[in-house]
Write a protein that binds this DNA or RNA. Sequence first.
DNA 1: GTGGTCTAGACCACG
DNA 2: GTGGTCTAGACCACA
Lengths: 130, 130, 130, 130
Amino acid sequence: MIRLNYRDARPIYEQVKDGLRHLVVTGALQAGDRLPSVRSLASSLAINPNTIQRAYEALEREGYLYTVAGKGSFASPQADVDAGRRARLLEQFDQSAAELLFLGMTVAELGARLQAAEAGRVRPGEGESV
Amino acid sequence: MIRLNYRDARPIYEQVKDGLRHLVVTGALQAGDRLPSVRSLASSLAINPNTIQRAYEALEREGYLYTVAGKGSFASPQADVDAGRRARLLEQFDQSAAELLFLGMTVAELGARLQAAEAGRVRPGEGESV
Amino acid sequence: MIRLNYRDARPIYEQVKDGLRHLVVTGALQAGDRLPSVRSLASSLAINPNTIQRAYEALEREGYLYTVAGKGSFASPQADVDAGRRARLLEQFDQSAAELLFLGMTVAELGARLQAAEAGRVRPGEGESV
Amino acid sequence: MIRLNYRDARPIYEQVKDGLRHLVVTGALQAGDRLPSVRSLASSLAINPNTIQRAYEALEREGYLYTVAGKGSFASPQADVDAGRRARLLEQFDQSAAELLFLGMTVAELGARLQAAEAGRVRPGEGESV
DNA sequence: GTGGTCTAGACCACG
DNA sequence: GTGGTCTAGACCACA
């Protein structure tokens, strides 16, 4: 389900990283779910396993997954996510909000987008049949 | 007022760019206000003028300021900001909001941050005595 | 009738030059008509006479006007325009046409614009009452 | 195939930019084709790599090519070209047409040049054997 | 004095 | 080997 864009300026390993994190964040992968192995993902995306490995390592440092030698990598519960990642996200949220307000959007409009984002989430338990 | 972080992965010119844009977005610089000259900002930040120049060029392309050769650079009115910039900001807003919701923050908490951002703005006319 | 834009990246003298040439090209100034004096134009635009002088000199080199010492500057007949200017215009025309065709416009669409440009012209004799 | 003119008022990076864009627009470079590397083009034109880099960056912003770090730069499909670029081209087309009509050229003559420009294009697929 | 351009040369991340 | 960033220092046009 991860789509690579070779014309994107972002390096491949970062596209993989963002794609996997997106699966976790949207609830497509629930805590404890097993992620594809480095080799299988590499072959299905037709890229070098080193590149996948790098993405997994970065996500593990951020706390989005954990790896068990010989078993595989698994999605972490949200509580494990690195505090630094949280801080960076909050800063990103505040800055984009401030700039959008400057550009004429209202607090009400942005609040509506928050509601929409909340409505689009898959909560634990809901999506297990997938 | 701009603080550079040499350990940050983001290039310096981008940190300068974001810092200057922040001044415009928060209203610290009102439309028409003159920004520091390339050379003076370079020396006060202790970096090369070319790096500052690059940040100014990028901000001009985004529509946050305009430059008159031989005169200096000046803050643009909000209406001049590039339309593409707005779209990118909305995406950034939505993505950071989605991930923060996953991490356990509530819509109410994020809404409160929106209120805070709105409250921190300096609107045109308010800061003229400064 | 010339409007200066101090936020434009083009230098002032070039804006003046283009503005005057536009008056000639559109037929607002017919061959032999007297242009405003350097001093009067400078004061009406509130800029330095040297800047106006520079624009007049450049237009004289291009052949769009001629200056008689003690009398003033006058619009030239179109035949006097510098051959180099013609060549540069043709190149500009060809290049913009080629690029617009690349971008999906058709020869018919561009031809229609030519017709429109032709229709908008003021021909010698037509506009003299102005 | 790009010729630089050091006596031209236009900066070198812009001459390089226009030369490369011309290759894309005329179809000499088809979508996906690889452009010369920054370093190789710099050495073959005997100018500094930074100057070439600047031209490539500008063309990427206009949408004529895309760059993958570590891989190279590639021609974009026509659809990716920035919308603002199209508007600027139309204005350039109209203005040069208006001035050429003033200088005595006829709509028929300019129409013939459009036909010539159309005839000179290489359409996708045509040039593959080269 | 201002911004705009260019050069020479350096180091880094990426795949 | 590729592009991306940064520095140091230079010259020019503009108002």
